[in-house]
């Protein structure tokens, strides 16, 4: 994936966490050899279950963790290398993050104005009145009112807090947003508000979004392309429609078969597919790698599996 059609390129990214020393050392490969690219102004969805490394991937890209290996290019510039003030500034100017927990992600001791305006202050803006004006504009943009600026986070509902989190991220006008499960902690009725808001902002500001979530319906609705992660590996990348119609990796199939749909007729006939890696793959002789099985459709598979998948596609067509 070396072509420059991507604004963000993640190549062989590894993030290993180790604890203990010597013989007792324990290494967890939270992210292992993950490769994908995100095009400008597109939404790339990253799905997977808890512990699959999707959140770690996002946090490593924005350098909340120092990557163990691999490279991350943003507009061609490596942002996974050694941290220095210049790189920090480049990173914070271009990429912002939205967090999962609407309660945890806002400082309880700061007012909304201080929270949203902090990014501006860090960038050297001193004029209180101007900051105030920009904060109020931003509040209106996310559907809140001026009076909310002087309030504390605990007075807001989950959806409102998440909108405040979005306001904080976009007030510095980043090119890309990493949204880490922005709706999964919200009530159903407000999830749609936040998704619509993100969609509007994306169009208005030409944002590129890396959307991390576990809910495949939401990811499919929101994303242009989707990557499926399982235990630190990216196992399948495809267009949303393709992935849903033609899932190739057995884990993707299992995931799709488990999503409950609000339809009592289909739900009562649901057939669930189990994914058992030891049964579904035989990697004793061959090493799996990321392969483009058909245009725009990548699967993590071994050569013999690749042949099988190609047959499947031919049969479907």
């Amino acid at each position: 994936m070396a072509d420059s059609q991507y604004i963000l390129e993640v190549n062989n990214l590894c993030q290993h966490f180790s604890s203990g020393r010597g013989k007792k050392q324990l290494t967890v490969k939270a992210v292992d050899d993950v490769t994908f690219g995100v095009r400008p102004a597109e939404t790339f969805g990253l799905v997977g279950e808890s512990g699959c490394g999707k959140t770690t991937t996002g946090r490593t890209i924005i350098r909340l963790y120092n990557p163990t290996g691999g490279e991350v290019l943003f507009n061609g510039r490596d942002i996974a290398g050694k941290m220095n003030p210049d790189l920090r500034k480049y990173l914070t100017d271009n990429i912002a993050m939205i967090f999962q927990d609407p309660i945890e992600s806002l400082n309880p001791k700061m007012t909304i104005e201080e929270i949203i305006g902090e990014g501006l202050k860090v960038r050297g803006m001193k004029d209180q009145a101007e900051i105030r004006k920009m904060v109020v504009d931003m509040l209106r943009k996310v559907g809140l009112v001026e009076e909310h600026a002087t309030r504390y986070p605990h007075e807001f509902s989950g959806g409102q807090r998440q909108r405040i989190g979005i306001a904080r991220a976009i007030i510095v006008k980043p090119k890309m947003i990493i949204a880490d499960e922005p709706v999964s902690a919200l009530d159903v009725s407000v999830q749609a508000q936040v998704i619509n808001l993100l969609n509007d902002l994306k169009e208005e500001m030409g944002l590129t979004i890396l959307f991390i979530a576990h809910n495949l319906s939401v990811v499919k609705y929101f994303s242009d392309r989707i990557g499926v992660m399982y235990f630190g590996h990216l196992v399948e990348v495809a267009n949303g429609e393709d992935l849903y119609k033609n899932p190739l990796h057995p884990y993707t199939k299992a995931l799709l078969s488990a999503i409950p749909e609000p339809n009592p007729i289909t739900e009562r006939q649901r057939v669930r597919i189990d994914y058992v890696p030891a049964r579904d793959h035989d990697y004793s002789n061959e090493q799996p790698s990321m392969v483009e099985v058909e245009p725009e459709h990548f699967v993590y598979c071994s050569p013999s599996e690749l042949a099988k998948y190609r047959e499947q596609i031919a049969a479907n067509a």
């Binding site: 159903v188 009725s189 407000v190 998704i195 619509n196 499919k220 749909e261």
Partner: peptide, 16 residues
């Protein structure tokens, strides 16, 4: 109507 299912393509009807 506020939640997308796997077939939804239109703008979601959020509850304001």
């Amino acid at each position: 109507s506020s939640m997308p299912d796997l077939h939804t393509k239109d703008r979601l009807d959020a509850i304001p």
